[in-house]
């Protein structure tokens, strides 16, 4: 695991898990807001529509208008837009080649694996600061809450 770490509030973690399970067997997606001072702390995970035209069981896409709204929301609420989350239905929470190809610097990409409708794992990825485009896995911590309910 790399040098990066991300902490999710219990509320944010619950929102991501719930969204992934509700959207199953389709991929869900949303934005991550919070603060970055000594470390990266996500206080809020906000669902947005999966706007992908095609097989939404294997792909997601956030529309540009939704992206612009997210930037405005962060600015208007004194938050930082820290990244995005999405689900991998019946696939591990490992970033795919497709995820890597479209990844932006700085952003955290949180992935929740949902197996048969139930969240199974959560991981996060961030681009390394190298010329070659590669992900580093971020260590995920959750504050105040158990990782998953039974």
């Amino acid at each position: 695991m790399g040098q990066y770490k991300i902490t999710l509030s219990g509320e944010a973690q619950t929102a991501i898990v719930r969204h992934g399970e509700q959207a199953f067997p389709f991929e869900c997606c949303g934005f991550l807001y919070g603060h970055e001072n000594d470390g990266r702390f996500v206080t809020e995970a906000m669902p947005v529509a999966n706007n992908k035209k095609g097989d939404r069981r294997k792909q997601f896409e956030i529309s540009p208008p939704d992206y612009m709204k997210a930037e405005k929301y962060a600015l208007g609420n004194g938050l930082q837009l820290l990244g995005a989350y999405h689900s991998h239905p019946n696939h591990p929470a490992i970033a795919s080649a497709h995820d890597l190809a479209l990844a932006m610097p700085y952003f955290s990409y949180v992935i929740v694996s949902v197996k048969n409708g139930k969240a199974a794992d959560i991981k996060s990825w961030r681009l390394k600061e190298t010329i070659e485009k590669k992900f580093a896995e971020e260590k995920v911590a959750v504050k105040h809450m158990a990782m998953f309910s039974d």
């Binding site: 991929e27 992908k52 997601f60 990409y109």
Partner: peptide
Amino acid sequence: ISIVPIIAGGC
């Protein structure tokens, strides 16, 4: 003018 990254991917 807004520069908008496409946030997309999938498994």
